[in-house]
Computed example of a mutant assay.
Amino acid sequence: MSGADFAQQQLHSLYQDHHGWLYGWLRRRLGCSHRAADLAQDTYLRVLTSGRVPDQAQARPHLMQIAKGLVVDRHRRQRIEQAYLEALSHQPMAVAPSPEESSLVLDTLVRIDRMLASLKPRVRETFLLSRFDGLTYSAIAERLGMSVATVRKDMLVAMQACLAATEAP
């Protein structure tokens, strides 16, 4: 049996042995059978794309860890989508984006949110103070008790991460 056949057999066994349990766990957690089914399939897709099928002893903890991450991602996306829709509701209908444009904007916002969450706290705070509170580098340096040069370095890191997040597919 080739390595690919063995991996496929392992994945099949993992799915057969644990799909019902995972689906039930997600359904209880989400309160919706359709979302649970989608996230259960997404969990197995992540296992498939990772190329790492856990052994039987670690199967459920591994699947649960992936599924929890997907649930968190889903809640985060819903929160971002609600904020986006709220912002759109204050715009005239003439400037309302198409569904395709809205989807692209939401995907970009989710990537930016992930990027912000991945930054070191000081870098994230520096970025937010500059871009959302409109503070100057001098004001940020004074508020955070650091040099203007450090603010510049933190902003460079944040802007590079932001650029990378918005260019990602």
Rank of each mutant, 00 (worst) to 15 (best):
A40D: 05
P61W: 06
E100S: 09
T108L: 09
H19T: 03
L30A: 07
A168V: 03
L104S: 11
L11V: 06
G134L: 03
Q9T: 12
R124F: 01
L85P: 04
W25S: 10
A168I: 00
H75F: 14
S13A: 15
T136Q: 05
V53N: 06
L85C: 11
F132G: 08
L22C: 10
A139K: 08
Q56S: 15
G145Y: 10
V47Q: 11
L63K: 10
L22M: 13
R46E: 14
L156M: 11
V53K: 12
S102Q: 14
E167H: 12
E125Y: 00
K68I: 06
L88W: 06
T166F: 03
A36V: 04
L104T: 06
Y44R: 05
L45N: 08
M115V: 04
R131A: 12
Y84C: 11
L104Y: 05
V47W: 03
P97K: 08
A168H: 09
A7F: 12
S50T: 13
R29G: 08
H90K: 13
I80E: 10
L128R: 08
Q78M: 10
E101Y: 02
R111A: 14
Q56R: 15
Y15M: 07
R122P: 01
Q10M: 15
C32L: 03
Q78E: 15
V110K: 07
V72D: 11
L106E: 09
D55V: 08
W21E: 00
Q9F: 12
L135S: 02
T108V: 04
A67M: 08
T166K: 10
T43W: 03
E86P: 01
P54H: 12
L106R: 11
L39T: 07
A7L: 14
L88R: 12
A117W: 01
R143H: 06
E86M: 08
V47N: 06
A161P: 03
D38M: 04
Q8K: 15
V72G: 00
T43S: 08
R35G: 03
Q82K: 14
Q16V: 13
S102A: 11
D73I: 03
I112C: 07
H62G: 10
Q160K: 07
D17Q: 15
Q10D: 09
S103G: 12
R76C: 05
Y23C: 09
M146P: 02
Y44V: 06
I140R: 05
Y84S: 07
H12Y: 14
Q91H: 05
V157G: 01
W21D: 04
D42R: 13
A83H: 09
D55F: 10
Y15T: 09
S33E: 14
L144Q: 14
F6W: 10
R52V: 12
E86T: 14
Q91I: 00
S130T: 00
A161H: 00
S102T: 03
T43H: 06
L109W: 11
L63T: 04
D113L: 00
L30I: 05
Y44T: 04
K120G: 09
V95K: 10
V105D: 09
Q9A: 15
R124I: 03
A36Y: 05
Q82W: 11
V105A: 15
K68A: 07
A165H: 12
V157I: 11
E167Q: 14
D133S: 05
V53P: 02
R76V: 04
L129W: 04
K68H: 11
R28K: 12
L109I: 06
S118F: 02
I66Q: 11
A164C: 01
